[in-house]
């Protein structure tokens, strides 16, 4: 199991019984704490499995070293600090077929963070798009 703080079973999740409940009910944990992480849930499919293996954990593994990918039966659970980006033009090269951001969205099951598309790129970011940062339109 990954030792990253972004791992599925990290932090309090690694605790059990009374040790878990003590931290869970601790006074400081009775309010939300701002988080700079993002979570992405990808439904397993032929294309998504390639994107996980050969793109995110392959050619782009150094893009964001906080990225954790875990196998949760029918889906891949991804968590990273900051952002996760997928360039679908590059994915199309790997897959050897046409693959747009809309093809990618077919198998994106959930996002926690601000997700958006621009051109061939899918991004999920901790930035507050539309508030702190303007959402861009495609430029001609």
């Amino acid at each position: 199991m990954s030792k990253s703080s972004n791992a599925y079973g990290a932090g309090i999740m690694a605790k059990t019984g009374k040790e878990f409940s003590d931290e869970y009910f601790a006074e400081e944990n009775q309010v939300f704490h701002e988080s700079n992480e993002v979570v992405l849930v990808l439904k397993k499919s032929d294309e998504i499995n390639v994107i996980v293996d050969e793109y995110l954990l392959g050619d782009h593994v150094d893009d964001n070293q906080t990225l954790v990918v875990e196998d949760r039966a029918g889906y891949w659970w991804l968590k990273a600090t900051g952002k996760i980006e997928v360039d679908c033009a590059e994915v199309a090269e790997i897959l050897g077929k046409s693959f747009s951001v809309y093809d990618f969205l077919v198998d994106v099951s959930s996002t926690i963070g601000r997700a958006y598309t621009l051109g061939d790129t899918f991004t999920i970011t901790s930035e507050l798009m539309g508030l702190d940062t303007k959402l861009k339109d495609l430029q001609s």
């Binding site: 999740m13 869970y24 988080s35 901790s126």
Partner: peptide, 28 residues
């Protein structure tokens, strides 16, 4: 279940959605 809830509701929804909106006046 309490761990599932803690992950998806408290840590991720609470921290990533609501927590980030704190500077716009959104509170726990």
């Amino acid at each position: 279940w309490v761990k599932t809830w803690n992950r998806w509701v408290y840590e991720d929804w609470g921290g990533i959605w609501i927590g980030r909106l704190g500077k716009y006046g959104v509170q726990s």
